[in-house]
């Protein structure tokens, strides 16, 4: 039951975060959204991911947002012109379309927590057994991350590097080196 509550919180937070015109509170609520998400993931036993999300999603991301806000503007401008409404309608149509395709795809999905699901029965057994037997690592997530799918991790590091270089390249001030 608590899961349902948490998920409801997520929905409320996300709507508020999108809707409010004050960017600062929007960012703060986004941070709260991330935090609730962390709890949800912990309850789903995704401990490593929850840690990362707590640090990165709720922490670093909020800080970046705040520093960006401090360099730009806090408020979103109000507008009640008709033109925007048509645009919003268009956006809503896209969203409804995408959403319905997603829902359509969910109909014959394996039920939540289904042990028979293919996702659990093709690669996972090898990883779960192999982690201890082949590599001797207790945390399966670590073992997959570091060895079986190590190249993803290298890619991930590259992404961070790219982001770092990009931010420096974009924000470097005149006169600096």
């Amino acid at each position: 039951m608590i899961d349902i509550f948490l998920l409801m919180f997520l929905v409320i937070f996300s709507i508020y975060s999108i809707h409010t015109e004050d960017l600062l509170s929007s960012v703060i609520v986004l941070s709260a959204f991330s935090f609730v998400m962390t709890i949800v993931w912990t309850r789903l036993n995704a401990v490593d991911v929850a840690f990362t999300e707590a640090a990165v999603g709720a922490g670093v991301s909020t800080i970046i947002f705040l520093s960006a806000l401090s360099r730009t503007k806090r408020g979103e401008e109000k507008r009640v012109t008709k033109k925007i409404n048509i645009y919003n309608l268009f956006a809503a149509l896209i969203v409804i379309f995408t959403g319905s395709v997603l829902v359509y795809g969910t109909i014959d999905m394996p039920a939540f927590g289904d042990i028979e699901a293919p996702a659990y029965n093709v690669l996972a057994p090898r990883f779960i057994i192999g982690s201890m037997a082949e590599l001797g690592i207790k945390n399966f997530v670590t073992s997959i991350l570091a060895s079986y799918r190590g190249y993803d991790t290298l890619g991930e590091t590259t992404v961070i590097f790219t982001a770092g270089v990009s931010v420096v390249a974009l924000l470097r001030r005149k006169g600096g080196t």
């Binding site: 799918r149 993803d152 890619g155 991930e156 590259t158 992404v159 790219t162 982001a163 990009s166 390249a169």
Partner: peptide, 17 residues
């Protein structure tokens, strides 16, 4: 296929900048 996604993101991020 997931690795593909990671590389798509590397290429995209750098091209944005």
């Amino acid at each position: 296929i997931f690795n593909l996604y990671v590389f798509v993101e590397i290429a995209s991020l750098s091209s944005y900048t």
